[in-house]
Design a protein around this nucleic acid. Structure first.
Lengths: 172, 172
DNA sequence: CCAGATAACTTGCACAGTTAAGTGATCGTG
DNA sequence: CACGATCACTTAACTGTGCAAGTTATCTGG
């Protein structure tokens, strides 16, 4: 951020009427969409959206096993937060911990059979919700537009972010 | 997940590869954009994004005055949350409370001169950040695409939401 | 005019998340 | 081998938020 934002310094760069409405619409989605997804998961599975992301990530990992720090990066959360999330999931019997035999500093989070059963149970409902809230209401062309817009915004937030690599697959 | 969920009775409705990447990109924006905006405001003005929305809304109201419940609806927050936020802003000297002379059940939040000075001070930096993170990286056509996409998603989340009215201005 | 219902707000409790300090394991250098 | 530095994780203190109960003000029906 350029520090020269003296209130009197640069007059231009304000938002015009259209930009303002676009911004308001985006803010609404930023607030409402996460809370709608959380509500569905909480109601149908008793789990938060963030916890779901962790479970989903673990379920796709080889051996259904991942390091806590890897999971934190994957789910874009801090390490302490991930530590507590894993503790909650462990208490519910869906995950167990083991020190990494290769390097004792790491802790491996391993999804149990009960955890696997849980995600098998809740995934269809969650995916259905994502589809209903995002893809169903969009036209055929809009998902691609949205994808490009999101990538551009992400690049503006942090140009050298690991996540960008996962998203940069035009695939067309 | 390996994508074999469809066999569990539910019809397909799974996400294909493109949809999946779009979804991942959107999730990243949903997580990162609010936190980037919060970071800028916290750093430059010592205020949260939510508090800023409240100050901004109040600053535009006639007489720089609004009912707490109106503010809560405007900023899409709960009434208890707004009550606490106003208490914090009051403690900082930017807002004061008065019972509504017309109906004593309401409480009016009134922006003080210090609050007005504060928003004059921080608005340019915040708007600049919004422009830099959202509008600058987009092509000329994309803001309109984004606006339409957001309105469709909002309508899917809650078709009879007050907020939609504010957003439904094609203006072209 | 009075009692109950309702509305707007406030408060108390529980809990998730961030930051900073603490713990244990591993690496690098002499 | 030893000692400090670094790394991954855990724990603790604090803040913010949602929910439910409490408080005060207004409306409604008799």
């Amino acid at each position: 951020m350029d520090g020269e934002q003296g209130s009197r310094g640069e007059a231009a760069r304000w938002l015009d009427a259209d930009e303002r409405l676009t911004w308001l619409a985006l803010v609404s989605v930023l607030v409402r969409l996460p809370s709608a997804l959380d509500a569905q998961l909480q109601r149908d599975a008793g789990i938060s959206n963030f916890e779901y992301q962790v479970m989903a990530g673990l379920s796709e990992a080889p051996g259904r096993t991942m390091r806590i720090s890897e999971l934190a990066a994957l789910a874009e959360g801090s390490l302490p937060r991930m530590s507590q999330v894993i503790a909650r999931l462990e208490k519910r019997g869906w995950v167990r911990r083991t020190p990494d035999p290769g390097d004792g500093r790491y802790t491996l989070a391993i999804m149990t059979d009960a955890g696997w059963a849980k995600i098998i149970e809740m995934a269809p409902g969650h995916v259905e919700t994502v589809r209903r809230l995002i893809f169903d209401p969009l036209t055929k062309a809009q998902p691609r537009q949205l994808h490009d817009i999101c990538r551009r915004i992400m690049r503006a937030i942090d140009p050298d972010d690991q996540c960008l690599d996962r998203l940069d697959r035009p695939s067309a």
